[in-house]
């Protein structure tokens, strides 16, 4: 079921990324609390059907690159009180990410 695609993944492990600060009207799986936050790509995890179109009657094709991204909890929550080494992991489609410094 994997679609053939020529698109090479734009990011690789270790890249710093910024999550787009957008709230499109259609279904999307990017939670509010990571928008406009900086994280690190842990790995490219593969090509996946696009749930943003599948939710609206589409086929979900072409499949899109997906990444596991790590955030420092202290970057997400200004008053995070537990441990500065704590992390949050989440899987995100490439189109939600922009390269950051």
């Amino acid at each position: 079921m994997r679609a053939v695609t020529d698109a090479a993944p734009a990011f690789s492990a270790g890249d710093r990324v910024l999550v787009r600060d957008e709230t499109p009207p259609h279904h999307h799986r990017t939670p509010w609390y990571i928008k406009a936050r900086r994280g690190r790509v842990l790995e490219f995890i593969g090509m996946y059907l696009n749930s943003e179109t599948r939710a609206h009657g589409g086929s979900g094709l072409p499949e899109l690159p997906m990444y596991r991204v790590e955030f420092d909890q202290t970057d997400l929550w200004p008053d995070y009180a537990e441990s500065p080494s704590d992390k949050l992991w989440i899987d995100l489609y490439e189109h939600w990410l922009v390269r950051a410094r």
């Binding site: 279904h27 599948r54 939710a55 609206h56």
Partner: peptide
């Protein structure tokens, strides 16, 4: 009906 549509309907 797929699971993404289920979620969109819930949302």
């Amino acid at each position: 009906m797929n699971v993404d549509e289920l979620r969109r309907g819930i949302e």
